[in-house]
Simulated scan of single mutants.
Amino acid sequence: MLKEVQEVKVGGRTRRVHVRPFAWNLHAPTHMEWTPDGRLLVVERTTGKVKDVTKGGDMEEAKPFAWGLQGPSSMCPLPDGRILITEFWGGRIRDISVGGPSEKLAIYAEDLSKPYSLALDALGRLLVTEHLGHGVGRISILASGKAVPLVQGVPSVETPGFEGYTPPHAWPDRWEGFVAGCGKWGTDPKVFPDRPYVFAVSIGGLGLIVGVPEDGGHYEALAPEHTFARGLGWTGGMIAHPFDGMLYVTQPLQGEIRAINPRESRNYRFDPPVVSGIPMASCVRFTPDGEKMLVCSPQSGAIWQVEGFSD
């Protein structure tokens, strides 16, 4: 049950965290991003739409920014102002910068294998997660519209509870997937200051977060040396806070957000969550000033606003 005021521990300090709805009457909102011009866009997985929720409030009658997408999953704003989005069921990435119907939107890359997460790494390379089936995925660099593998052999597993957000033709064997860390990693010296990581990936059912070096490699070789958070529940999307140097990761099945310190490597099994009770929390972002956390909840059809979690 979601409590409006929660007492939690973050960074060794006890805080009173305040939670309230920011935007509601959405249809399975699973991912959101701030655009370079200051808009907050959110994906509605089941309707194939992207909506502008910058002002928050009741979204029941809100006109979509883009629509007709096949399994829209993850968005990524580029430095030049373009906004890209993955179509999980369409096997492609589109440029939705101008908005409108999908058939009129440019295709950035296609013939991908169930692309999900999309992000820039610390070197400015565009990365995408692909799901190859049979429990295996990979992280690829997108160069000139082509996917070049960076990390092979990443575990790719079904996320319990997300069955209703996939089309029936995908059942039972075509909907497994994993979610890599979202956002641009490693550019802030407070994040990975002593480690050569350009990216981080959360491994859903394993409860791990693994750092990815510039040259990548095979997951089985990377995980033993570069896993810096373990003992987590089923993990989803994550992002670095713009100021406090912590990573914040969703735990959809627990309805929680956890704070991870990337400057150390340890087990988080007994750490309390930053906030709890958010049904199927799938994506976390922050307001530009870093004072408010926004969390997508596809199960409740809402984006929740969290205050008081950080100094």
Rank of each mutant, 00 (worst) to 15 (best):
K3R: 15
R15N: 01
R16F: 15
H18N: 13
A28S: 06
P29R: 01
L40I: 09
R45C: 03
G57I: 02
D58H: 07
E60C: 02
A62C: 07
K63Y: 09
A66R: 04
Q70W: 06
G71S: 01
C76I: 05
I85H: 10
T86A: 08
F88D: 01
G91P: 01
R92F: 08
D95N: 07
G100Y: 01
I107Y: 10
A109L: 12
E110H: 11
E110N: 14
D111R: 11
L112E: 09
K114S: 07
L118D: 00
G124A: 04
R125G: 00
R125H: 00
E130Y: 03
E130T: 00
G137W: 00
A143H: 14
S144K: 15
S144P: 10
G145H: 12
V151Y: 05
V157M: 14
P160M: 07
G161Y: 03
Y165C: 04
Y165L: 06
W171C: 08
P172N: 03
D173I: 05
R174F: 01
V179R: 05
G181W: 03
C182M: 14
G183M: 10
G186D: 06
D188T: 04
K190F: 02
Y197H: 11
Y197W: 15
F199M: 15
A200P: 12
G204P: 01
I209A: 14
L222K: 01
L222E: 05
A229F: 10
I239C: 13
P242F: 08
P242M: 15
G245W: 08
V249D: 10
V249P: 07
V249A: 12
T250K: 06
T250R: 05
Q254G: 12
Q254W: 08
I257C: 05
N261L: 06
P262N: 06
S265W: 09
R266V: 11
R269G: 13
F270N: 12
P273Q: 05
P273L: 02
P279L: 02
A281N: 08
S282P: 04
P288T: 13
D289I: 14
M293A: 13
Q299N: 02
S300P: 00
S300T: 11
E307F: 09
F309R: 02
S310Y: 03
